[in-house]
Nucleic acid binder design. Structure first.
Lengths: 265, 265
DNA sequence: TTTAAATGTACAGTATATGATACAACTTGA
DNA sequence: TCAAGTTGTATCATATACTGTACATTTAAA
């Protein structure tokens, strides 16, 4: 099975990048010399240099001829740190410009898994859409949604390109009550990689959300993929104790601009 | 920067394996034909075949000449679906056997990033540990922790191998109050890949948690990496409206075995 | 039975990755 | 100033990866 393993250059690159990210450096911000790295990883110096060149281009390290290779502090642009309680509201409140690219909009027969999650009737179609959301012109999320057709007909292609789906659903009169969400990690497939401007095989943060109405019927099935360098989920938690059992409880994120003030309704 | 990207065979292999693991298949257990995959990924059919050969050798797919390529082990073992509010308590309550492998235990100078996150005094060392947690004998999480040395000395290597760190911290008298947590996706580096028994370059769910005491001092910095095929974060949310602003609020997961009964204290 | 479509096999040419080596240019400290 | 150590550049040889092509074998449906 030749060719399935990562190339040596890539392995060295990954290891070094990880060491830098984790701050696991021998002494103060200095990487070992190329010869030492080559010996440590059992590869040629040329290979080490290729990995270092990539790290340098990404702005993670600086190399000075004759002196050495140095890790640059405070790496690069930090991701948007979004509380899951209301991502979009936060972004807007932060004054960041967001835009949406609508890649698909049609009605189709959903897969069995989605049909059962949304509790659809047999043969019921869904409104299907794929959107890419940009912040300051840069793509950061890839959203695939399924909405039961009877609800999906209440909005148009133009609506979806202009407003968040959730607000369109509430406009249609649906009583949104609860949702379940799962978070995992997946690799970028070619189509998603192209839409998000990352390489195939990059790690993406994936969330799957199912939204239910007050009557228990499924309203929306959302599969979202995020670039981890531009988007991270954030949670604030407090330690609670009830009936002798200690656990964590999440704290509702303060509205943007506010500060931890907790006024009831 | 040649050579830093994964080889094409590997990209195809990773993406396909990820698709299979995530059950993201077009129709029922059948993979698209090799020609279609080659076109989709922009590689030659030979390359697709190399990736498929590896997947076949790993027992993930079966190929039948003239018929097609089929995904085996329908659905496979589903991941543990853990509510972040108390992962371990849930696992134990579910009657699953968990074990810990202690890979590192020492005291060291933390990186500047960790020192500032924990608000350490200049030169203050941390108790450093790396653990791998297993469920039913299978590794599913890789935990790297930093604890200020003054707190870290209250537990031993044996303690850490036997009990959750959080309970050791609370045993030491620390008043744990709150924590912040971020969730992202990362690629498996060689060391983590070996510990979790995955391949280099696999997608992992990563969480970084910082725990604070009542006096505001940092108590623990945790970097956790999870296998997404064995572990997924789950959240239940309800739609709330306050002062005309609609948003999501998380629901505390019911204790295992319970059902949504919400008894105060 | 026929036909289309799928996987299996083979081979040769090209592109890329890796290694080995040598030397130049620069920095640091003795 | 000198010497040791470090990164930068260049070149050639070899190994591996990738592609394109052609054809064989098997399956499944018309």
């Amino acid at each position: 099975m030749a060719g399935v393993e990562p190339s040596k250059t890539r392995q060295v690159y990954l290891v070094l990048r990880d060491r830098i990210a984790g701050g696991r450096l021998d002494d103060q911000g200095t990487l070992p010399p190329e010869q030492a790295l080559a010996a440590e990883y059992g590869v040629s110096r040329v290979t080490v240099r290729r990995a270092l060149a990539e790290l340098e281009q990404e702005g993670l390290i600086a190399r000075r001829r004759g002196a050495g290779t140095f890790v640059l502090g405070a790496g690069g642009a930090k991701p948007i740190v979004a509380d899951f309680s209301d991502v979009l509201a936060n972004l807007v409140a932060m004054g960041r410009e967001t835009a949406v690219r609508l890649l698909a909009f049609d009605y189709r027969e959903p897969s069995a898994a989605i049909a059962s999650t949304l509790k659809l009737n047999a043969g019921e179609k869904t409104q299907f859409s794929v959107r890419v959301r940009l912040i300051d012109g840069q793509p950061f999320s890839h959203l695939t949604t399924h909405v039961p057709q009877r609800i999906g007909v209440t909005y148009t292609e133009a609506d979806l390109a202009a407003r968040p789906l959730l607000s369109l659903l509430e406009r249609s009169g649906v009583q949104i009550e609860r949702a379940t969400q799962e978070v995992t990690a997946v690799l970028a497939t070619p189509d998603v990689a192209a839409a998000l401007d990352v390489e195939v095989g990059s790690a993406l943060l994936g969330t799957t959300r199912t939204v239910f109405a007050a009557d228990g019927s499924g309203v929306e099935h959302l599969s979202a993929l995020y670039r981890p360098d531009r988007y991270a989920l954030h949670m604030e938690m407090v330690r609670t104790e009830a009936a002798g059992v200690r656990r964590w409880a999440t704290v509702l994120a303060p509205a943007a601009g506010d500060r931890i003030t907790k006024k009831a309704s």
